[in-house]
């Protein structure tokens, strides 16, 4: 068994199945588990995917949204047990892998065309 195969097999039990395909430019809802006062509830964070970092178990997506005119970005590990599920709301058509340019744009300039 090669070293890489052993590493993969260690991470394998933690990988989620049935995660939808998430690409940069998509609008995604992340259902996050929040623990408050011993209780657990689901909080939804909806935003545009501005970056996807690959890397097996370490794969994560960065979501950006405007919350009362303030830009908010959160990065979610795809396979984290603290994220209940991801839901793709809208597919975006973009020409770049990392959409960091959206940070400098607001309103009409920050629109993303829909991919069909």
């Amino acid at each position: 068994m090669s070293k890489q195969a052993i590493l993969d097999s260690v991470a394998q039990p933690f990988l989620k199945t049935g995660v939808p395909e998430i690409r940069p430019g998509d609008t995604v809802k992340a259902h996050v588990k929040v623990r408050e006062g011993g209780k657990e509830r689901i909080q939804i964070f909806e935003g545009t995917v501005i970056a996807v970092r690959h890397g097996g178990i370490a794969k994560n997506v960065t979501l950006r949204k405007l919350s009362s005119q303030i830009g908010v970005e959160r990065t979610f590990p795809i396979h984290s047990p603290n994220v209940d599920k991801f839901e793709v709301v809208r597919r975006g058509k973009v020409r770049r892998a990392k959409l960091y340019y959206l940070r400098d744009k607001i309103g009409k300039a920050a629109r993303i065309a829909e991919r069909r």
């Binding site: 070293k3 890489q4 052993i6 590493l7 260690v10 991470a11 933690f14 588990k33 097996g56 178990i57 370490a58 590990p77 396979h79 984290s80 047990p81 603290n82």
Partner: peptide, 21 residues
């Protein structure tokens, strides 16, 4: 030493680990 990867602990935190055979 085999290499490094990540696992998630009981509270859902990502832990960097070194795998040793």
């Amino acid at each position: 030493k085999i290499g490094m990867t990540h696992v998630f602990d009981g509270e859902g935190r990502m832990v960097p680990v070194t795998v040793i055979q």
